[in-house]
């Protein structure tokens, strides 16, 4: 369905995508997870024909994006980060315009608009101007405009940015429904709970490179050391730190030390005892369960949303 090989894209002197390769099967929901500036939006831009890569090939639904861009565009839908809608037009008029650009005939277009509005729970507001909609409703209409031509592949670039939890849940339900219908979805986010909930496979992107890829279990195996305990101290001297290095595999972040162990329950008492032995003054203890956030931290040494 999607086959990207060794994609390179450079802006000025910055290489934004560095030999990225992606293979996404039909009906799969693939999450591209990474912090701001990691290359998620550029990746979506390249895969969706908007941005031309310098090197590499991309095949979408059997079409080469450089050789057959129009055929490729007809078979994909893109939900951008921006709410790209005409505020002065109604939801219905917006959908008629965007659907019309894909050459859908009048009767069929009306039928699809009706179906899509029902799917997104917006059928009762279709004749109101978009400027009167809430942020969540605008996001849903934005999604609707990408679904009218029934694309085989849907690219969603952070579609839940800046919306209320209720609308976010509704969007999740829509995506889950589309998945069940067999649509291939590429979903970028920097919210790990979204990727965990929605995606069959996840690619972790950082500095323009896919640094890990797989389902949640496989990623956990990638970063087996991501479970453990984080203990914060009032202060840590170099001597105290060196004593702990000899004791267990650790990582330090200011006054917090991460002790990596798959058996936290068993090891916790031993860790606390060791800290007391080296005269460290504990202020906080936090058990770290393995999730995408900790996997990301373990793989990159960076937090997803702080960076």
């Amino acid at each position: 369905m999607i086959r990207a090989e060794k994609i390179i894209k450079t802006y000025g002197k910055t290489r934004v995508l560095n030999e990225i390769s992606l293979h996404i099967a039909e009906g799969e929901c693939y999450g591209l997870l990474g912090p701001n500036g990691a290359g998620k939006t550029t990746s979506i831009g390249v895969l969706s024909t908007l941005i031309s890569p310098e090197k590499g090939t991309v095949m979408i639904n059997g079409y080469d994006i450089l050789k057959s861009p129009t055929a490729c565009k007809k078979s994909i839908g893109v939900v951008s980060q921006e709410i790209a809608l005409y505020q002065e037009l109604s939801g219905y008029e917006n959908l008629r315009f965007w659907g019309g650009l894909y050459g859908i005939k009048n009767i069929e277009l009306n039928k699809r608009i009706k179906e899509t509005l029902e799917l997104l729970g917006l059928d009762n507001r279709q004749n109101d101007k978009v400027k009167t909609y809430s942020g969540g409703m605008k996001r849903r209409i934005n999604i609707a405009s990408a679904l009218l031509h029934k694309p085989k592949v849907l690219f969603m670039d952070e579609p839940t940015v800046g919306i209320d939890p209720q609308s976010r849940n509704l969007i999740f339900e829509i995506i889950e429904k589309l998945r069940k219908e067999g649509m291939t979805i590429v979903y970028t986010t920097h919210y790990m709970e979204e990727a965990e909930r929605l995606c069959d496979r996840i690619g972790i992107i950082d500095n323009g490179e896919i640094i890990a890829e797989g389902n949640l279990q496989e990623l956990k195996a990638y970063a087996s050391e991501s479970e453990g305990v984080a203990i914060t101290f009032t202060s840590i001297s170099e001597q105290q730190y060196q004593s702990l290095v000899k004791f267990m595999k650790i990582k330090r972040s200011e006054n917090t030390i991460y002790f990596y162990t798959p058996e936290v329950q068993k090891e916790l008492a031993k860790i606390i005892l060791k800290c007391t032995e080296v005269s460290l003054d504990i202020t906080q203890i936090e058990i770290i369960k393995s999730n995408l956030e900790t996997i990301f931290l373990s793989l990159t040494g960076k937090k997803l949303r702080d960076s």
Binding site: T49, L50, V78, A84, Y86, W98, L101, S145
Partner: peptide, 13 residues
């Protein structure tokens, strides 16, 4: 500025 141009570029025209 509002992302409409980008969206138009995604359309098959």
């Amino acid at each position: 500025e509002e992302g409409m141009l980008k969206k138009l570029l995604w359309a098959p025209l």
